[in-house]
Write a protein that binds this DNA or RNA. Structure first.
Lengths: 138, 138
DNA sequence: GAAGATTGATCGATCAATCTTC
DNA sequence: GAAGATTGATCGATCAATCTTC
């Protein structure tokens, strides 16, 4: 179906543009941003490495390396769970929270410009219903 | 908006699944498939390298390397335009056509299962209209 | 000098193998 | 031995630099 192809095209362009925007404005790529968002929504103690990878749909090994970069940048902290010392817990630092807040401004503007502002509220609602049908797990 | 995030999640899962399917069944990744599709829709003489990159939203240098692989696999041919010898023209080989035909079966089944079959025809139409509004460039 | 394409160098994503703790 | 995470090795994507033809 052509609709499917349009969806892919739209997604590709939009995500690419948002990624560039975020890189240019804040030095973060979209996956890094996504990780920070997940951590911001987690309890303040943080999230286990594996859960973070699952939530962001990133492979575990990629997640390890992405977190390495964020640790080097001072945006997140690793610590180990006292209960089960196999697991590693990742949490935002104060810096990380601040960077995320600024990045969110940039990013949400971009999403508004390329998505939300172009649609009537009913369209968004309809799209939501369609997605619910497409991705029951989602 | 949560709708935006659901869209991203759905896209990510679906594209990932389709990519794996195609790799497993045919040894092609999704970008390679996309290139073959573009070439199949081009005139039989082929497409210029740069146009191919633009059509698939792949960077030029990535496109060069992707075509390298397809040439090595015998699925496409490079030739140079007699008019302007700077340009390189890429075209499907008979093998490429055959592989594409088989890959399309696999791929279209996957799209059907994850997209088309889950929606009523009206939903598809509505989604098409929404996309047209989102991405006037098409 | 610009347009078109390719190559060199770098960087991130991933699988398989490894290491640690359970 | 399995669960959790990390590291080694590979592979593809990309930018900048280069090469060729205009």
């Amino acid at each position: 179906l052509t609709v499917w192809r349009h969806l892919l095209q739209y997604h590709r362009r939009t995500v690419h543009a948002l990624d560039e925007e975020l890189r240019a404005a804040r030095g973060l790529d979209l996956d890094e941003y996504d990780v920070l968002v997940q951590l911001a929504e987690a309890p303040p103690e943080g999230m286990r490495m594996g859960d973070l990878a699952a939530a962001t749909l990133i492979a575990r090994s990629s997640c390890t390396r992405l977190v390495d970069r964020l640790v080097r940048a001072g945006l997140v902290q690793r610590s180990s769970d006292r209960g089960d010392r196999r697991t590693v817990v990742v949490a935002l630092t104060a810096d990380g929270r601040a960077v995320l807040r600024r990045a969110a401004l940039t990013h949400l503007d971009g999403v508004a410009a390329r998505f939300a502002d172009r649609l009537a509220p009913e369209d968004v609602a309809v799209l939501g219903r369609i997605l619910a049908r497409l991705d029951p797990a989602g």
